[in-house]
Computed example of a mutant assay.
Amino acid sequence: MVTLAEVAKHAGVSASTVSYVLSGKRSISTPTRERVEKAISELGYHPNAGARALAGKRSHIIALVVPLRTDVYVPIMMEIAISVTVAARSHGYDVLLITNDEGPEGLRRVAASGLADGVILMDVELDDARIPVLRETGTHAALIGLPADSRGLACVDHDFAGAGALCAEHLADLGHQDIAFIGYAPGVYQRHAGYAERTLSGFRERAAQRGLRVLHRPCEGSYESTAGALSRILADRPDTTGFVVQNEGAIGPLLSLLRTSGRVVPEDASVVALCPDPLAEQYSPRLTAVTGPAHELGRQAVELVMNRLDDRPTAEVSLLTPVLTPRESSGPAPVR
């Protein structure tokens, strides 16, 4: 890593001159400043967080690590990102977007360069490889998601286990006994995405308490993959009358496939989705849905980072309560 002393030597000036150029605390002649700036550019120097602290300066930037995956629902990710940006601006901060494909090394780069005063991580996995870097570097951070070990971390998330439980409870109250859970693509579970695993765990636990028979079938979300999942469900459990869907891409295909198979919703089959209310309202029949405010995740994550920057105490984990809104896609189990 390039040091301030190396920049000074390259520019033919003292280290204090380089520091003054960076901090703006003293007037430096234009030729000298340009020479220093050229040396900084040629050497690829980034002032580290320690130097910023000594200079009494903050970058007033928050780094937001956003997922670039084909298996995430982009509108929700964008809603969270916009919420983070708006909340950050209310504190006089700008947002630097970093893609999660940079992984732990991307966080190391941000921490070493002092580009950002704090970091917000999205798409958190249960055993997320980025978390040891946060602890090692002492980076001020907030997580939108809940890892398996949240000690010492500031986290905000939907209560996905509670959301899964609400789905099972609702269908059990309507008299359904055989319920299928159509989830995300297999890769989401293989990488232990917290939102997927916690929802499924909460659903299974409440289903067991209510004596329900359940199946879980991962699904890519395309029409073909949804057709395959439904075919396997009905082959294994032909008496299935309740469907829980945690895959936005599979909702439309499932409703269409149920119709073409002669199953009327909700008379013959009830469907409950984990999705935003605007999406639930688009379908016919309108979907019974469990949801939570995505914008609130972004706002609270920014507040957590601000609290850490100002050494204010914060709760380690904040879970937002899910809400189930009954609509026309769920009804009493058919009498057989």
Score class of each variant (00 low, 15 high):
residue 45 Y to W: 11
residue 177 Q to I: 08
residue 207 A to E: 10
residue 84 V to C: 07
residue 75 P to S: 03
residue 118 G to V: 06
residue 247 N to G: 10
residue 70 T to E: 15
residue 93 Y to I: 07
residue 3 T to C: 04
residue 34 E to I: 08
residue 234 L to M: 10
residue 329 S to M: 04
residue 308 R to A: 14
residue 152 G to K: 01
residue 224 E to M: 05
residue 252 G to H: 12
residue 71 D to F: 04
residue 142 A to I: 05
residue 53 A to V: 10
residue 295 H to K: 10
residue 104 P to G: 01
residue 64 L to M: 13
residue 281 E to K: 09
residue 226 T to R: 02
residue 160 F to T: 05
residue 46 H to G: 03
residue 61 I to F: 12
residue 40 I to K: 06
residue 240 T to G: 02
residue 163 A to F: 10
residue 6 E to V: 05
residue 29 S to P: 00
residue 36 V to L: 09
residue 297 L to P: 11
residue 28 I to R: 03
residue 270 S to E: 08
residue 50 G to W: 12
residue 130 R to V: 01
residue 204 R to F: 11
residue 317 V to Q: 11
residue 114 G to D: 07
residue 110 V to Q: 03
residue 190 Q to A: 15
residue 2 V to M: 12
residue 57 K to N: 04
residue 162 G to V: 12
residue 286 R to V: 15
residue 232 R to L: 04
residue 24 G to Y: 06
residue 280 A to D: 02
residue 77 M to E: 08
residue 175 G to Q: 06
residue 66 V to M: 13
residue 73 Y to K: 04
residue 15 A to W: 14
residue 13 V to W: 01
residue 1 M to T: 09
residue 71 D to S: 02
residue 66 V to N: 07
residue 53 A to S: 09
residue 75 P to E: 07
residue 172 A to C: 05
residue 127 D to P: 02
residue 141 A to I: 09
residue 74 V to H: 01
residue 7 V to P: 00
residue 199 T to M: 04
residue 203 F to V: 08
residue 167 C to N: 10
residue 143 L to E: 03
residue 267 E to K: 11
residue 136 E to N: 01
residue 168 A to R: 04
residue 84 V to G: 00
residue 273 A to G: 02
residue 292 G to A: 15
residue 207 A to F: 00
residue 293 P to R: 15
residue 189 Y to D: 07
residue 259 R to E: 15
residue 255 L to R: 04
residue 128 D to I: 00
residue 202 G to W: 15
residue 230 L to S: 09
residue 289 A to I: 10
residue 17 T to H: 02
residue 83 S to Q: 12
residue 227 A to E: 10
residue 28 I to M: 08
residue 169 E to A: 02
residue 256 S to F: 15
residue 119 V to L: 08
residue 127 D to M: 00
residue 235 A to R: 06
residue 202 G to H: 13
residue 328 E to S: 11
residue 82 I to M: 13
residue 89 R to N: 10
residue 147 P to C: 06
residue 310 D to Q: 12
residue 248 E to L: 06
residue 33 R to A: 13
residue 125 E to H: 10
residue 226 T to L: 03
residue 1 M to P: 09
residue 9 K to Q: 14
residue 214 V to Y: 00
residue 298 G to K: 12
residue 253 P to M: 07
residue 114 G to A: 13
residue 195 Y to I: 13
residue 184 Y to W: 06
residue 116 A to H: 10
residue 131 I to V: 01
residue 264 V to E: 15
residue 310 D to W: 09
residue 268 D to W: 08
residue 62 I to E: 12
residue 255 L to K: 06
residue 60 H to F: 14
residue 283 Y to I: 04
residue 100 N to T: 07
residue 305 V to M: 12
residue 231 S to C: 04
residue 203 F to C: 03
residue 74 V to F: 00
residue 207 A to S: 15
residue 116 A to R: 14
residue 237 R to H: 11
residue 294 A to L: 07
residue 151 R to G: 14
residue 317 V to K: 08
residue 151 R to C: 09
residue 196 A to S: 01
residue 102 E to Y: 12
residue 118 G to R: 14
residue 313 P to M: 14
residue 26 R to T: 09
residue 82 I to H: 09
residue 76 I to R: 01
residue 335 V to G: 04
residue 92 G to M: 06
residue 59 S to T: 15
residue 1 M to E: 13
residue 317 V to C: 13
residue 71 D to T: 14
residue 162 G to E: 04
residue 64 L to Q: 05
